[in-house]
Simulated scan of single mutants.
Amino acid sequence: MSDVTIVVATKDREGDLRRSLRHHTVPVVVVDNASADGTAQVAADAGARLVRLPRNLGAAARNVGVEHVTTRYVAFADDDSWWGPGALDHAAKVLDAHPRTALLAARVLVGKEERMDPVSGGMARSPLGRPEGLPGRAILGFLACSIVVRRDAFLGVGGFSELLHFGGEEELLALDLAAAGWGQAYLPELVIHHHPAKGGRDHQWRRRREVRNRLLTAWLRRPLSALAQEAAVSLRTPDGRRGMADAVRVLPSVLRARRPVPRAVARDRARLDGY
């Protein structure tokens, strides 16, 4: 019996979900972000457990999925991605052997060409090195669809933020895990396959949302000097300026939620800025 469960958050992507679910080899929980298509039937046909939400929670839907999981470890996948053979069994063994590690990030191979995602390349060259007791190179960022987490650690820091919805939601979780003393590592021997659709995605909206979420994350957890740097970078492009305006509109609701990370974590994060 596997000690890993896969959680997939999805919305109105029944075609992608049908293709990806057939590749999963461990139990799957599908969290439906209020879809209006045939997502529920696709999940049922694949034998996955379905959790239907009354509204779209974005990335925080994954938290609901994790709450329905009973295994010690949880792997995330998107509706257009799936884990390579043996990856999750290996991840469970690594986490068993490294009790202070909460998160393992995999190498992401994109499309039929299996091109390595640039984020994976960045993690492979992380300047944070490999601290003692960590099974791989230390990281403070990742792609959400490419991680295996220790369930209790994930829930202990609150999981993904509903405030950030989707688009760059990973950094806040990474900072919160690090602040709680948990290790996070990149393991290139873990592989996940990502087959995104070639059309139908609003890349401009995505860039704007990522700027918004970087700024909000900086306000919530990073030194004010880092927030100023992020703001200066955002002003350089139209999408960046729109993202900043989006963040400013939300800021009054999170003014009292600021909780800066410990200095050591802030220093590690600062090392990534010029990388």
Rank of each mutant, 00 (worst) to 15 (best):
Met1Phe: 12
Met1Gln: 12
Ser2Phe: 11
Thr5Val: 14
Arg13Leu: 03
Glu14Pro: 07
Arg19Asp: 06
Ser20Glu: 08
Val26Lys: 03
Val26Phe: 05
Val28Ala: 06
Val31Met: 08
Ala40Val: 03
Val42Trp: 01
Val42Pro: 00
Ala44Thr: 14
Asp45Arg: 15
Ala46Gln: 11
Ala48Thr: 06
Arg49Asp: 08
Arg49Tyr: 03
Leu50Asn: 07
Arg52Gln: 15
Ala61Ile: 01
Ala61Met: 03
Gly65Gln: 03
Glu67Cys: 12
Ala75Lys: 01
Asp78Ala: 10
Trp82Met: 05
Pro85Met: 05
Gly86Met: 12
Gly86Trp: 10
Gly86His: 09
His90Met: 13
Ala91Ile: 11
Leu95Glu: 04
Asp96Leu: 09
His98Glu: 09
Leu103Ala: 07
Val110His: 02
Asp117Gln: 09
Ser120Cys: 04
Ala124Gln: 09
Arg125Tyr: 08
Arg125Lys: 13
Pro127Val: 12
Leu128Arg: 09
Gly133Lys: 07
Pro135Leu: 09
Gly136Asn: 05
Arg137Glu: 11
Val149Gly: 00
Asp152Gly: 10
Leu155Tyr: 08
Gly158Glu: 12
Glu162Cys: 07
Ala178Asp: 05
Ala178Ser: 14
Ala180Phe: 13
Gly183Arg: 06
Ala185Arg: 04
His195Arg: 08
Pro196Asn: 06
Lys198Ala: 13
Gly200His: 06
Gln204Val: 14
Arg206Asp: 11
Arg206Cys: 06
Arg208Trp: 05
Val211Ala: 08
Arg212Met: 09
Pro223Ala: 12
Pro223Cys: 09
Ser225Pro: 00
Ala228Glu: 13
Glu230Met: 06
Val233Ile: 13
Val233Asp: 05
Leu235Gln: 09
Arg236Cys: 08
Met244Arg: 03
Arg249Ala: 13
Arg249Asn: 05
Leu251Pro: 07
Pro252Cys: 12
Ser253Thr: 15
Ala257Phe: 10
Arg263Tyr: 06
Ala264Tyr: 02
Ala266Lys: 03
Ala266His: 04
Arg267Glu: 15
Arg269Thr: 04
Arg271Ala: 15
Gly274Phe: 15
